[in-house]
Computed example of a mutant assay.
Amino acid sequence: MIEISQNSGLLNPSDQCYFSGCPMWQHSQWDGSLCSPGIHQQKMLYEYSRAFNSVEGNTTFYATPTKERVKGWADLTPTGFQFCFKFPQQITHHLMLAGSQRETEQFLDVMGTIEDRLGSFLIQLPPGFSPQQIDLLAGYLDRLPKSFRYAVEVRHLRFFTNTNDSHLLDQTLSSRGIDRVCFDSRALFSMPAELAKADLLIADAFAKKPRLPVKPRAIAKRPMVRLIGLLTPQQNLPWLEQWADKFALWITQGRQPYIFLHTPDNRLAPQMCREFHKLLQQRLPQLAALPEWPGEGFPSQQGLL
């Protein structure tokens, strides 16, 4: 029987059954909805972390922050909150893991400053990283500190279409207790291409996001899902329903999965997270409701007149 806290949407680390969040913790259009009206950007993480228990830390993909900055982020969040930071692109995309030991050690030394706030690191490999480099990946993973958790995302098509290559990747990861990221862009690409061209946001997402088969299986303790959807939660509902079924199964198996929900502009990404949680509650009624958002505690301007 899964023990789930009933006193708040943010669960204690000992009974946390799943983690969800957005690809960022601040967005100008969350002001007045997720976050308090007129909130300073530096306080957005504080309020975001009272609504969700995790975040996909894309910021580290572009540059490694200072230890002081990382510590400042952690200080704004409650116990149990988890950052899932991406490995820097210098390691994964420019060097493609080869000869990156120094950069990896420097990155993990900085991030280890907040070890109690770290979820699984996301190692996102580029489309050019092929099954022929699986030994390179295995050797790289073997050198990583065992004190951290990791999840690997691949984008080379053969990892999805070739059974032997897919099995070898799964075996490489599972034997090391490392999760495989489930990247799902089906909702985004469900829009006909001609209609997508008419919307600049969706057209841009069409051009930038990979379109790959989905492998919805868990090979370790903490499977991670990254769903790239259309603009509104309702447009993404069929895929949210499917993942709610899968998460309910994983949770009952004793796993602790992550899900990070994206939209082309991420304006309604928090609403999509909340919709997913409601769907999961239908399958796991003992799951606590998410807390009220800080921005929803304020009366509307219309109500003040």
Rank of each mutant, 00 (worst) to 15 (best):
M1W: 05
I2E: 10
N7D: 15
S8M: 10
S14D: 14
D15P: 02
D15S: 11
C17T: 13
Q29D: 14
D31E: 15
G32W: 07
L34M: 07
L34C: 08
S36D: 09
G38K: 04
H40S: 11
Q41W: 02
Q42M: 00
L45R: 06
L45T: 03
Y46G: 00
S49D: 06
R50P: 00
N58K: 11
T59R: 07
Y62C: 10
T64V: 15
T66N: 09
R69S: 15
V70T: 08
G72N: 05
G72Y: 01
W73F: 13
L76R: 09
F81A: 07
Q82M: 12
Q82I: 01
F85S: 00
F87H: 00
Q89A: 13
I91C: 03
H94F: 11
M96W: 00
A98F: 00
E103Q: 15
T104E: 03
T104A: 03
E105K: 13
Q106L: 14
Q106S: 14
F107H: 01
F107T: 09
D109Q: 13
V110W: 02
V110S: 05
T113H: 03
L118S: 01
L118E: 00
G119W: 02
G119E: 04
Q124I: 03
P127R: 07
G128D: 02
F129D: 04
S130V: 04
Q132Y: 06
Q133T: 00
S147Y: 01
F148G: 01
E153C: 10
R155S: 05
R155Q: 10
R158F: 02
F159N: 03
F160C: 06
T161D: 12
T163G: 03
L168W: 04
L169N: 04
S174N: 08
G177V: 05
D179G: 12
D179W: 10
C182V: 15
C182S: 06
F183V: 07
F183I: 09
F183M: 08
F183L: 14
R186V: 04
A187C: 14
F189V: 07
L201W: 01
L201V: 01
I202A: 07
A203G: 01
A203M: 10
A205C: 11
F206C: 09
K208W: 05
K209G: 04
P210Q: 08
V214F: 03
V214H: 03
K215W: 08
R217H: 11
K221V: 01
V225C: 14
V225W: 05
I228P: 02
Q234G: 04
Q235H: 10
E241T: 10
E241I: 12
Q242A: 15
W243C: 04
D245W: 02
L249H: 09
R255H: 13
R255D: 08
R255A: 03
P257H: 04
D265V: 08
D265G: 12
N266Q: 13
N266S: 12
P270N: 12
P270C: 13
Q271W: 09
R274W: 08
F276S: 07
H277G: 05
K278E: 10
Q281F: 03
P285L: 07
P285D: 08
A288R: 05
A289L: 14
P291H: 07
P291K: 11
P299Q: 13
P299H: 13
